[in-house]
Design a protein around this nucleic acid. Structure first.
Length: 387
DNA sequence: GACGCGTGGCC
DNA sequence: TGGCCAAGCGT
């Protein structure tokens, strides 16, 4: 425990006394031994696996990561296999996870590691921090979990837990961030730092919840100043936007298979660059009437992206009509076999639409195996038909 | 330091 | 149903 290690006189002090630090860490450790969730990336001593899981977990829920992680590790079991893959394939396995820049940086870093570091991850937080896509949190997470370095992670969970435990008023800013960092570091044991860090996050994710913390189940209730009181800062309200996509299909050359017309987003787009989606129609207005065959959309879905609710209408558009309308963008159009959709870098929204229309099969070929594309609650594979 | 970047699940 | 997120990073 580092509580004795007093910071320099000018640095802020931890928000807990030495005795509180010791009690907190002990109680947390005992709780974690019993309540730690069994997750695929836990209990493996492979820095590569820790790296992949931590990148996937950035701003992403554990449940969403589990199946993507399994497919990803099957297809790319090593740094070298990842480095050798085309970016298209990395994005295809990332499809549905969001924040696609993560996948590109992951791929870039894998190639960098192979070219300049013998395909091996560096073992300290300071060195890891220099790699693309690895920031303050992820460098500490990999260093502590995979290499045992006693460095604290600070994510949203840790921040919330420590604000509640210390009772420090939530006033965002550099001073508050430094206070959190110092307090978090004071709690890190010299050994098993990785387990301690994961326990801190596990506590925040399963007990010390943002809303409705379950204080009666909390292992550090006695050390907590606020017992769960915590005000969350209000957010900007969601905006709404209407959007229409064209669903156009044709028979493949063999006369049996079906192909779907997709459009590739510009490589320089800030949002989902280079990924495939259904062609977007001009918004309801003037010339649309001549284009749309079915007055009623084939499908309506709502799709939320941070800050915006998209109310989506998918319109069935025959091939001969779509050609004229979309000719200007013809160079970005691609016909994709429905059997190949699962292996393409498709945006989450288009993926959702195609699955709901049963045009997209529910498994993806990864190496020699067929992996389920959807995992239902409880880990049972589903066909997607239940939706 | 603020902002842009995705998504599925939960209530 | 609509609102609220969740194990951040780069610019």
């Amino acid at each position: 425990m580092n509580c004795l290690r007093s910071p320099t006189t000018r640095a802020p002090k931890p928000g807990l006394t030495r005795q509180q630090c010791e009690a907190f860490t002990q109680n947390l450790r005992a709780w974690y031994r019993v309540h730690a969730r069994v997750l695929p990336w836990r209990g493996v001593r492979d820095p590569y696996r820790t790296w992949i899981s931590e990148i996937m977990l950035q701003q992403t829920r554990v449940n969403a990561v589990i199946d993507h992680y399994a497919r990803f590790m099957t297809r790319f079991p090593t740094v070298v296999s990842l480095a050798l893959a085309p970016e298209e394939e990395v994005l295809a396995l990332w499809s549905g996870l969001g924040y696609y820049r993560r996948a590109r940086m992951l791929h870039r870093t894998a190639k960098l590691l192979v070219e300049e570091h013998g395909g091996v991850l560096p073992s300290t937080a300071v060195e890891l921090r220099r790699l693309p896509g690895i920031g303050a949190y992820t460098s500490a997470a990999i260093a502590s979990i995979a290499f045992g370095e006693p460095v604290a992670v600070v994510d949203g969970n840790v921040e919330r837990v420590l604000l509640r435990v210390t009772g420090r008023p939530e006033t965002p800013g550099a001073a508050a961030a430094e206070f959190i960092n110092v307090t978090a570091q004071a709690l890190v044991p010299k050994t098993n730092a990785g387990d301690h860090n994961q326990a801190m996050m596990e506590l925040g994710a399963t007990v010390c919840l943002p809303r409705g913390p379950m204080c009666d189940q909390c292992p550090v209730y006695d050390e907590c100043r606020t017992r769960g009181e915590h005000t969350t800062t209000p957010r900007t309200p969601m905006r709404s936007q209407r959007v229409r996509y064209a669903l156009t299909t044709r028979k493949a050359e063999d006369g049996l298979a079906v192909e779907v017309l997709l459009q590739r987003r510009p490589a320089e787009a800030s949002l989902m660059a280079g990924m495939l989606e259904l062609p977007q129609l001009e918004h309801a207005g003037e010339a649309d009437g001549a284009l749309v065959l079915t007055e009623e959309p084939v499908l309506r879905v709502r799709h939320a992206i941070v800050g915006t609710n998209y109310y989506v209408e998918v319109m069935g558009v025959p091939q001969r009509r779509v050609a004229a309308k979309l000719a200007l963008r013809a160079d970005s159009m691609e016909w994709v076999l429905t059997s190949e959709l699962a292996n393409q870098p498709i945006t989450g929204l288009t993926r959702k639409v195609l699955q709901r229309l049963r045009l997209m099969k529910s498994t993806v070929a990864v190496g020699k195996q067929e992996m389920p594309l959807l995992i239902g609650r409880g880990g049972k594979a589903t066909t997607g038909d239940e939706a």
